[in-house]
Amino acid sequence: MSTQDATDQAAGAVFSALADPTRRHLVRLLRERPTVTASALTDELDMTRQAIAKHLAGLADAGLVHGERRGRETHYALTPAPMSDAMVWMAEAGGRWDQRLDRLEREAGALRGT
């Protein structure tokens, strides 16, 4: 794999991870806090611990956060080289457009059938 391919793949993972509104919210929380745990966020987000843990794991897979096991909990923090504000904006905006354009493509296909 070329360096450019690897960069594109990494960028694609980031866009994909941030296409989900819950994950975008988690990134925003992590920019305000040193670490979070899935258990600590269950009340705040009104979601199950398992669902939050899954989202945090998705962010970790994209390289946006890293987790450190302490006892029974994994504490997540933004990666040591966090994205700049511009990168966060681009990733969020890009992820939203990917979702909108998926819907547009489906609607365009439906138009052709009418």
Binding site: A86, W89, M90, A93, G94, W97, D98, L101, L104, E105, E107, A108, G109, L111, R112
Partner: peptide, 20 residues
């Protein structure tokens, strides 16, 4: 550098797509 740009091919004419 900070622009987001996307292209998406649509399975309908530009006239039909404009209706969206």
């Amino acid at each position: 550098e900070e622009a987001v740009r996307r292209e998406r091919d649509l399975p309908c004419s530009a006239d039909d797509a404009w209706s969206l």
